[in-house]
Design a protein around this nucleic acid. Sequence first.
DNA 1: GTGGTCTAGACCACT
DNA 2: GTGGTCTAGACCACC
Lengths: 123, 123, 123, 123
Amino acid sequence: MNIILNHSSMIPIYEQLMEQIRNGIISGELHPGDPLPSVRGLAGQLRISALTVKKSYDRLEQEGFVSTIHGKGTYVSQSSRQLAVEANRQAVERDFSAAIQRARQSGLSDEEILTLIHILLEE
Amino acid sequence: MNIILNHSSMIPIYEQLMEQIRNGIISGELHPGDPLPSVRGLAGQLRISALTVKKSYDRLEQEGFVSTIHGKGTYVSQSSRQLAVEANRQAVERDFSAAIQRARQSGLSDEEILTLIHILLEE
Amino acid sequence: MNIILNHSSMIPIYEQLMEQIRNGIISGELHPGDPLPSVRGLAGQLRISALTVKKSYDRLEQEGFVSTIHGKGTYVSQSSRQLAVEANRQAVERDFSAAIQRARQSGLSDEEILTLIHILLEE
Amino acid sequence: MNIILNHSSMIPIYEQLMEQIRNGIISGELHPGDPLPSVRGLAGQLRISALTVKKSYDRLEQEGFVSTIHGKGTYVSQSSRQLAVEANRQAVERDFSAAIQRARQSGLSDEEILTLIHILLEE
DNA sequence: GTGGTCTAGACCACT
DNA sequence: GTGGTCTAGACCACC
């Protein structure tokens, strides 16, 4: 599982990490039962604080994607794929919804929005 | 010019203010030469700190949308509309671009994306 | 006496006015005994507040360049030319002194400063 | 990096701070990648408000000299030196240009200006 | 009246 | 610990 972080992005590192793990689950790269890298190991590899990795794992656990066994490690949950797909669908929908709202507020018509989308999809 | 702020949003108040003033310029509600409300006046009306309004005006000035005359007030710049339209076009494009990238990373096809957009536009 | 104000300059209007009147005295355009325009007349002509013109005249009087006779008007003082020349010499010296200090702080040598001056003088 | 502030100067504290940091970059005392002092730390050391330091850092970031990473700190940008040298060249040139214009308006000849510069440089 | 700066302190998010 | 935002209020300069 290859993880790439953008330190200058406005998106917090712990969110970037969460999203890439979720995407790994959706794409099938991570299966239910698979172990996640150890907190310290991943922190060392990514050159970030272990607390940041821990924060991501904690949130993923709260959301039901993984579960942590004290003293052993963190593992992908059984129901994770279904959850991940659903979470992603909502995130994507929310993003587009916000973008559409902004576009309309600035005076773009639905037709113009569709034209823009087509152009962007073809790039 | 009617301004609505969302105090519980994660978007800073000064950015919400900036965007609504920019939109006012784009929509033609604010013309070059028009005075903006006084810092203290607007702060009182919106029930926020004068410093927050000032921060918005300062950034808008740095971006070239308005210019301030000490002791007189803040005014919409001559070149503001052109700048605002362009800035907005970029922001909207950036938003859609990011949303499309995220949708693809989570496995959606272009066709599925277009279907989603159509649904969201009709809501 | 032709006065030109720059409203977008960082230099206060009352200072711009003062300097141009002082320069008028130095150049011989204004002689001792000559009347200055009335406060209200000049304010109307320049489209600025009468209080701003009054502030300039007041300061010029404090500095000895003009004297005001209540109910009559403001007149160029007898000793004004000598004062104006001296004030200007100090202002110019202060400006150059500050510019030199800044240039040195940023690492320019005296030689480089002189080269720059020569270039600027020839433009 | 030794910073000296003049609280009675007409130049705002945040501008004095900005200029001294820029000069630190030019002189090579601050290198790309170097961390700036923390906002609160520097504020405490200089006995000024943290907001004032923050304002300086914000503007330096907008101008491209530094970049801030949330929760980590503020760092000197890669392209900072080039920017700083150029910004400074412009500032020095602007200062001298304004001083020369003023000197000429008050009747000094180019020769007299050069004599004055030589005297000031030797002080 | 206007904007320009500064303060002291609060609360939150990120590492 | 770090930066990010916001507040309430002060004092000053300019119009």
